Simulated assay, not measured.
Amino acid sequence: VASVVLVAAIALAIGFRSTDATPLEWLAAFALLVLFATALTWIAVGMGLASPNAEAASNSAMPLILLPLLSSAFTPVHSMPGWFQPIAQYQPFTPAIETLRGLLLGTEIGNNGWLAIAWCLGLAILGYLWSTAKFNADPK
């Protein structure tokens, strides 16, 4: 929650403004970001616990950094090459980004809001179950 507040404060400090968003939409965007961060944190915890040592654990979540680059964060999915569009469309970052754009910038959300929540809940539950199973299985 603190990191989402910090990033939002920096975004506002450097000039991000949403003229169309209501306080309820800002709250929904904040909640989605917190839920998304929680989901990715649980996945990263599981990846770290599955790592053989501390050095590997520190780098195990690095592939997650590539996912925003493979999404609609920087370019619309429909403008990507045809073979790449399914990769960008069917991953967790695209519906989350499109939902945030819809909430804060007034673009069409469609079913991306529900997809983003489903991805977040699915990844959070998967990450939690994986992490707790790995933690409880370790004989440390």
Rank of each mutant, 00 (worst) to 15 (best):
G106Y: 14
P76H: 00
S79A: 14
L67M: 12
L70P: 03
I14P: 01
L27G: 13
A11P: 02
N136T: 14
A133R: 15
A8P: 02
G110Q: 11
I14D: 09
M47G: 03
T22R: 14
G82S: 11
L32R: 02
P139H: 12
A21P: 05
G122V: 08
Q85L: 01
K134V: 10
R17Y: 02
L104V: 06
A124W: 09
W83L: 11
L32D: 06
L12Q: 13
F30Q: 06
F36D: 01
I117M: 07
A88F: 02
G122N: 02
F84E: 00
F93Y: 07
R17D: 00
C120R: 02
N112P: 03
T99Q: 09
E108A: 14
L33M: 12
E98T: 00
F30V: 04
M47C: 05
H78Q: 13
D20R: 12
L100A: 01
H78Y: 13
N53E: 15
G48Q: 04
A116S: 09
M80G: 00
T38Y: 13
P52E: 15
L33R: 03
E98M: 09
N136Y: 11
M62T: 13
V77Y: 04
V7Q: 11
L104Q: 06
A137F: 10
A54T: 13
A9G: 05
L105T: 06
P86L: 12
A31C: 05
L49C: 10
S18T: 04
L126E: 01
L24E: 11
L115R: 06
V77R: 00
N136W: 03
Q85K: 06
A50E: 09
P92A: 04
P81G: 08
W119E: 02
S79G: 00
A11H: 06
F74Y: 14
L69I: 02
L12S: 12
A133P: 13
F74W: 10
T75M: 13
L6C: 10
W42G: 00
Q89P: 00
A39G: 02
G46K: 02
A137W: 10
V7R: 14
A21T: 07
W26I: 06
E55C: 05
A116P: 04
Q85M: 03
A9W: 04
N112F: 02
L35E: 08
V45A: 11
T19K: 13
L27Q: 10
R101D: 08
V77A: 00
P76T: 10
A124N: 04
V1H: 14
P92W: 07
A56Q: 15
D138V: 13
H78E: 14
L115Y: 05
S79M: 08
A13K: 07
Y128F: 15
N112Y: 05
F74T: 06
L69S: 07
W130F: 12
L70K: 07
P81F: 10
V5G: 08
A137C: 12
L123H: 01
D138L: 14
N112A: 14
F93P: 00
G122R: 08
P68R: 01
R101C: 04
S3K: 08
T38E: 10
I14E: 08
A50K: 14
A21E: 05
N136A: 15
S79F: 06
H78D: 15
W26F: 15
S72D: 15
F84R: 11
A57V: 06
G48A: 14
